[in-house]
Design a protein around this nucleic acid. Structure first.
Length: 349
DNA sequence: AAGGCGGGGAG
DNA sequence: CTCCCAGCCTT
């Protein structure tokens, strides 16, 4: 039996029932694909529902305030996706007359849409015969065909794209693409794949040479830098606090935070000294260190060591670098999840 | 080609 | 702990 027939047969018996599979609406499909980049279905699902509820159409998303989009994305990570999502909604609404690009080549021009996402939308929404190559496809094809190239290189990606193009069903490209991804997510998993009940067990090179746990080959290792953050949580008698938006090309761009002392070396800071230098017009009643053990927060390339401080004041003075907001209004802003969780832990005390 | 960018779940 | 998830953008 042909590869695509065997795969689709498996899919029809095992597929996951997901909301974005109930529609041909390119907006909803695009939204789902952006959310699912480097993100598990279970984690992305509630965000998909929230975005579609708050912004039923691409025009609604285009008209939204960026801060609100960022707040809705809060906790999902890789925040450039949210910024690009909003940017592209405006592009489609204002420059493309509200009409979604309907082919791979034009989809690829959209900000935040790369080869994978363009292929996914083109095939699922428009039936174009173009294969997706994501982490699942690398794993499935490397094992079945015994491909030992390092998947972290651009050359290898082309190799897999060519292989997938050769295998894709010309009659059901959308089903094929979703099938191979579900197969990777459910059956041909990274660890402990379900080989005994695999329809490709006869053909699978990796299985028949006992190399399933060695494929795919990925050589690149990301190294993690340590970083030390001290957040200053000002509170005055009116329950106001200082926050600021992160604007630099760095982690968490466009999210909000408390005043921050930030460094890559582990040297203890003198909060009193910081206050007299950077907040010299702000009388302070009391300084309380809220956690002695670091709050540890792991990012893909950084390991964050965080201390939170409470700075008690009578009344917060205006400060050009910070916004003064009421403590109970903090939920209007998108924060890094580690800060959001800390705010919640204070609120429930 | 290489590095940066989040957060969470599985094993 | 390590690995990886429906990747993309910048340098």
């Amino acid at each position: 039996m042909l590869f695509h027939n065997k795969l689709i047969t498996w899919y029809l018996q095992n597929k996951r029932h997901l909301p974005w599979r109930e529609t041909k609406n390119p907006y909803a499909i695009w939204l789902s694909e952006i959310i699912l980049q480097q993100t598990r279905v279970a984690q992305g699902l509630p965000y998909f529902e929230a975005f579609l509820t708050n912004y039923p159409t691409v025009q609604d998303l285009a008209n939204a305030h960026e801060d609100e989009v960022m707040r809705l994305w809060q906790g999902l990570g890789y925040y450039s996706r949210a910024r690009n999502l909003h940017f592209t909604a405006k592009t489609i609404t204002h420059e493309l007359n509200g009409v979604f690009p309907n082919n791979y080549k034009d989809l690829l021009k959209l900000k935040g849409v790369g080869e994978y996402t363009a292929a996914a939308i083109a095939s699922i929404a428009y039936g174009e015969i173009v294969p997706v190559v994501d982490g699942n496809v690398f794993r499935v094809l490397s094992r079945i065909y015994g491909i030992t190239s390092d998947i972290s290189t651009a050359t290898t990606k082309k190799e897999f794209q060519a292989k997938a193009q050769e295998l894709i069903s010309h009659e059901q490209p959308a089903t094929f693409n979703q099938a191979i991804m579900d197969f990777g997510a459910i059956q041909c998993t990274p660890k402990s794949p379900q080989c005994p009940q695999c329809p490709f067990i006869q053909d699978c090179v990796a299985y028949n040479t006992n190399q399933v746990d060695k494929l795919p080959v990925k050589l690149a290792k990301t190294k993690v830098k340590k970083r030390y953050l001290d957040f200053l949580i000002f509170v005055d008698n009116d329950q106001n606090t200082y926050i600021q938006q992160r604007t630099k090309k760095d982690i968490w761009q466009k999210l909000y935070q408390f005043p921050l002392i930030d460094r890559f070396e582990q040297n203890d800071i003198n909060v009193q000294q910081i206050l007299t230098e950077d907040f010299k017009n702000q009388p302070v009643k009391d300084i309380v260190q809220l956690n002695t053990d670091y709050v540890i927060h792991i990012l893909s390339h950084q390991k964050l060591h965080i201390h939170f401080w409470m700075i008690k004041c009578e009344k917060l003075a205006r400060n050009e670098n910070y916004e003064i907001v009421s403590w109970n209004q903090l939920n209007k802003f998108g924060f890094p999840i580690v800060i959001h969780n800390f705010i919640n832990s204070i609120n429930t005390k």
